[in-house]
């Protein structure tokens, strides 16, 4: 599957919310989209392009904005595809993919607590790796390494 194949299927469904499809090494391509069309894109990728398995969800802090990316796998094409969208740092939220791929559930919980990206309509947005009430988002670039004692006090009393 080539980037052109992705464009041919996705462009009619997403319209101007499809920002571009690029070649990406080792994958079928990289699909950049606006977050308003997230659910449409997920359904099209799963049902029309046969990427039935969501392999991972992650987030990147680019300081001026944040990026959410999804990697899906197709058994018939034996290829991955990379989907990514940019969200502003001050208003970092995107529609959940767990309605389309249930495996997104825990990945999005992890992304939420580590990179501070909220997933709308997520069924169970709780802390996964850090304790309940944990006050930090450790994978943000603004996170400083704390002295253990300081972290302890803040973690125990939140």
């Amino acid at each position: 599957m080539q980037p052109d194949d992705l464009t041919r299927v996705l462009a009619p469904k997403l319209g101007e919310n499809l920002l571009g499809v690029e070649a990406f090494e080792g994958m079928a391509g990289r699909v950049r989209f606006r977050r308003e069309a997230a659910l449409d894109l997920f359904r099209a990728v799963r049902d029309d392009l046969s990427f039935a398995h969501l392999s991972m969800v992650g987030g990147i802090d680019w300081v001026d904005h944040r990026e959410v990316f999804y990697v899906a796998w197709s058994d018939s094409a034996r290829q991955y595809v990379l989907l990514s969208t940019d969200v502003p740092a001050t208003d970092a939220h995107v529609e959940t993919a767990s309605a389309v791929w249930p495996s997104a559930n825990w990945h999005e919980r992890e992304t939420w607590e580590l990179v501070d990206i909220t997933f709308d309509h997520h069924p169970d947005l709780r802390h996964l790796l850090t304790p309940d009430g944990y006050a930090f988002h450790p994978l943000l670039r603004s996170f400083k390494i704390h002295e253990p004692e300081e972290l302890e006090v803040k973690t125990r009393h939140v």
Binding site: T130, P138, F143, P148
Partner: peptide, 17 residues
Amino acid sequence: GGGPFRTAYSVVPGVDK
């Protein structure tokens, strides 16, 4: 004392805490 992960964001620096 937390070992090599002493300054990590998620590790208790010593179980005597």
